[in-house]
Amino acid sequence: MGINRRDFLKGAAGSGLLLAADASPALAFGPRTPKELPPDAVGILFDSTLCIGCNACVFRCKQANPHMALRPEFNVPIGGLKIHDTPIGLSENTLTVIKLYKHDGGHSFIKHQCMHCIDPACVSACPVTAFTKDPKTGIVKFCKRVCIGCRYCQLACPFVAIGFKWDEPFPEMVRCQLCDHLIPLGKYAACCSYCPTGAALYGRVADLRKEASRRLDLEYGEPYRFPVNHIESGRKSFRPAAKYYPNIYGDTEGGGLQVMVLAGVSPLRLGLPDLPDVSNAAVSEGVFKTIYKWFAAPIVLLGALVYLAYRNTEEYRKPKDEDD
């Protein structure tokens, strides 16, 4: 049989309609409004130029969080301290890791961990609200009870900082929660409380941002009193400032991060992703919420479809001889 011009145009028009009906809002609407940093949000400032690679943070992190040894048999406490292992990256056993970046002129250490985004993708992605962002401290928390193990959070996380216990029959997700279980005890993140040089510095994000920009203003070699452990601890390390790459990673990247990085080289060379200033969660939710605003579009579409289906199944509804 042949196809006439009319049929063809109808087909083309039909497809056009389908396109228009569905996702044209995706084109027309931008990201949703970015999330604000809670005023008392806490975070970490990691200064790569201060890090000496002593791995205290990695070890203390494993100690502060339960069952973090690389191999289960290492979880046996010996003399009150768990055996130290050498992780190669973030995993279900390692919530923070110091990695080495080597280049011709030298090397830098970088602390990889959950960056506690101000607008976290995992919180946006989780279908069962297992991830929440603390409204006061801004810490991204994980609630194991409801997690169904779909691993969409891992997919969404720009830093691949969420672990999954792959080798267990009844697994769970594992992530850095900035030691929020220590806060009621009057302590703070274990990695920072044991960092001897102040490379990992804990404190209010607002204070840390000020501190970071102060450091960027330092001349190369200018002596400076670097705060150690907690920005309010009063403990200082006196030493000349290194040469800084003029960017606070996490000030704007990915909609802002509560864990910020200062380094002597571009943070992008230290294994941190090149993120736009708008968070992925905002982009995704911008499209998503536009399509499903008040659930209006689906309801209108459903109405139209019910009408069309009713009109076009007239014949079908009629009782016919062959049915009897």
Binding site: I52, G53, T86, P87, I88, G89, V97, I98, K99, L100, Y101, K102, H107, F109, I110, P196, T197, S237, R239, R269, L270, G271
Partner: peptide, 16 residues
């Protein structure tokens, strides 16, 4: 604080 001088960065660190 001392300043560790690694003439060659230690090999036990995970690379980027």
């Amino acid at each position: 604080l001392g300043d560790p001088l690694y003439h060659f960065p230690p090999s036990h660190f995970a690379r980027i």
